[in-house]
């Protein structure tokens, strides 16, 4: 595998706190990865990269709504480059706060950059910060982020958020279903539907939605943190007989597989 030819940029701003873990995961896969602060972003050309990651954290202190300030800022300042990046089918991944950013910027679930969001990630039903391992079912394994998975496969990946309750109107939900844009759903450990049952659906998300993509599939956002389930020693079983790797690694493996098949 020669992933060294692929380049990723992990963006950060005040309050971002998962940038390093995300970089470590990507570099472990062989992807040349840079962490770039929003204040330095103008010195970079985003089109030099194959993948942009918006990592987890609490950008701008979650003021207004989680992800709202960063979402508006980054997509106003870099609109032209980001539009080109998206149109060319390059990859964009939002994890946790990064998912909130893509939703608030109107990038997910739409195509292109919308003025107003079509979905929301609202305060968890429990009114608590939920930090726990959850089980996800792969609903669509034809995206660049899920190629290395089986459809229906169950992954164990942790979440850590206070605002993750996926909300939208009926029309948008139908469109998401029709377009196979629902990528991950929260499920019971045996893979059966959670149907909103807490804590398997940890936040009260509509239709148990944990992650979605745009119509093209080149942009994905998810509340769970794949970079926190990457190495075997990150898993709860680490003390006994630690597995070699965590399920989150499959997101990164998928990205590599996609790039290898699509970028010469």
């Amino acid at each position: 595998m020669d992933a060294g030819k692929f380049r990723a940029i992990v963006l950060r701003t005040g309050g971002t706190n998962c940038d390093l873990e995300t970089k470590i995961a990507l570099e472990e896969m062989g992807v040349k990865t840079e962490i770039v602060h929003m204040n330095k972003i103008e010195s970079k050309s985003l089109l030099d990269y194959h993948l942009i990651v918006f990592p987890g954290g609490f950008s701008y202190g979650d003021y207004v709504r989680a992800g709202a300030v960063w979402g508006k800022r980054v997509f106003t300042r870099l609109r032209e480059q980001l539009e080109k990046f998206i149109d060319e089918g390059r990859l964009m991944l939002g994890i946790c706060n990064g998912f909130q950013v893509l939703v608030e910027a109107g990038v997910l679930p739409g195509d292109g950059i919308g003025e107003t969001p079509l979905v929301a990630l609202a305060t968890n039903s429990s009114a608590k910060y939920e930090c726990r391992w959850v089980w996800l079912r792969v609903e669509n394994n034809r995206t660049p982020f899920t190629l290395a998975m089986e459809k229906g496969e169950v992954l164990k990946i942790p979440i850590g958020h206070a605002e993750g309750r996926f909300l939208t109107d009926e029309k948008t939900l139908e469109k998401l279903k029709e377009g196979s844009q629902i990528v991950f759903k929260y499920v019971l450990p045996n893979g059966e539907d959670a149907n909103g049952l807490y804590p398997y659906n940890p936040n009260g998300s509509l239709y148990d939605i944990a992650g979605i993509c745009n119509r093209n599939g080149n942009i994905m956002g998810m509340m769970p943190h794949p970079e926190r389930a990457f190495f075997g020693w990150q898993l709860p079983e680490w003390g006994e007989a630690p597995p070699e790797r965590g399920d989150g690694r499959k997101v990164f493996e998928s990205v590599i597989e996609y790039l290898e098949n699509n970028i010469s």
Partner: peptide, 10 residues
């Protein structure tokens, strides 16, 4: 409000 302060979904 439309652009930042409110999310019209909720």
């Amino acid at each position: 409000c439309r652009k930042l302060l409110a999310n019209p979904v909720k």
